[in-house]
């Protein structure tokens, strides 16, 4: 198994990065750190997709000298998927940070447990 993992070292690294991001998301109580964890997970996905599209010994998919043979270029599709992912991740990061700013203005803390406690106290 380790030999196979070593052959796919890029994908292995991206999976481990994904796990690190997930652990940060689950274990950190600070909201900003949770958002950073989500962003690490995003980055892992980009690395995974980009590594899926690479083919050894071929060039980036920009036509040079009118050569349009499949065997000359790498796969262009993951590049487009990564672009979509980046745009969506930027959008949701911005919205989550804006919500965090609002929460901080109201409760003067970023700790999610304390915010939940204070919100419960408000309801009562």
């Amino acid at each position: 198994m380790f030999e196979l993992l070593y052959q796919n070292i890029e994908q292995t690294v991206s999976v481990i990065l994904f796990g690190i991001g997930l652990t940060i998301l689950l274990l950190q109580r600070n909201l900003i750190r949770k958002i950073i964890g989500l962003n690490i997970m995003d980055t892992a996905i980009y690395l995974f997709l980009a590594s899926m599209g690479f083919i050894g010994g071929r060039k980036a998919p920009i036509v040079v000298d009118g050569v349009t043979e499949v065997s000359a270029y790498i796969n262009p599709i993951p590049a487009g998927l990564v672009l979509t992912g980046i745009v969506v991740s930027v959008s949701f990061t911005a919205i989550m940070l804006a919500l965090t700013v609002r929460l901080y203005r109201r409760y003067h803390t970023l700790d999610i447990d304390v915010i939940a406690l204070l919100a419960k106290g408000e309801d009562a």
């Binding site: 198994m1 993992l5 796919n8 292995t12 590594s51 083919i55």
Partner: peptide, 13 residues
Amino acid sequence: LRTVATMPRFSDP
């Protein structure tokens, strides 16, 4: 990781 180990080799055409 088990899934990655069964995937095709990196840079395989």
